[in-house]
């Protein structure tokens, strides 16, 4: 074994199992990224092309956005991993608050025009 010349670079103690886990995580992240790119292109095409009516395109792109955000939160930001119970609770609390909030703002500002 070559001596560790740079003492400023500590090694992380990884077992073989953890190394395999990291490799698998890497693959999952790349798949997630490809899916997100694909969804972005799909959303872009469904609006840019004249063939698709707005009545279909708008709900469709909103669903694509929701799926992308879930992928981002659960895979890129690791909400799916263990030890993320409280982060999940915080984000879910936020989502529970924002649904009536966005609906109320849309109605009060957009329809009632206060």
């Amino acid at each position: 074994m070559e001596p560790n010349l740079n003492t400023n670079q500590p090694k992380v103690n990884l077992s073989q199992k953890e190394k395999i886990k990291l490799e698998r995580e890497m693959r999952h992240q790349i798949i997630t990224f490809v899916v997100m790119i694909f969804f972005t292109v799909l959303a872009f095409i469904s609006v840019a092309s004249d063939l698709i009516p707005a009545s279909f395109a708008v709900p469709f792109i909103l669903i694509l956005a929701a799926v992308q955000v879930i992928l981002q939160l659960y895979y890129f930001m690791h909400l799916k991993d263990k030890d993320h119970e409280w982060p999940n609770a915080f984000m879910l609390s936020g989502i529970v608050i924002i649904i009536p909030m966005v609906a109320a703002l849309m109605l009060l500002l957009g329809v009632v025009k206060f």
């Binding site: 984000m91 936020g94 924002i98 909030m101 966005v102 703002l105 009060l108 500002l109 957009g110």
Partner: peptide, 14 residues
């Protein structure tokens, strides 16, 4: 999340 949602709601209203 709540901060940005309030801005989204305002935008959608206006």
């Amino acid at each position: 999340t709540v901060l940005f949602a309030s801005l989204f709601g305002t935008y959608l209203g206006l």
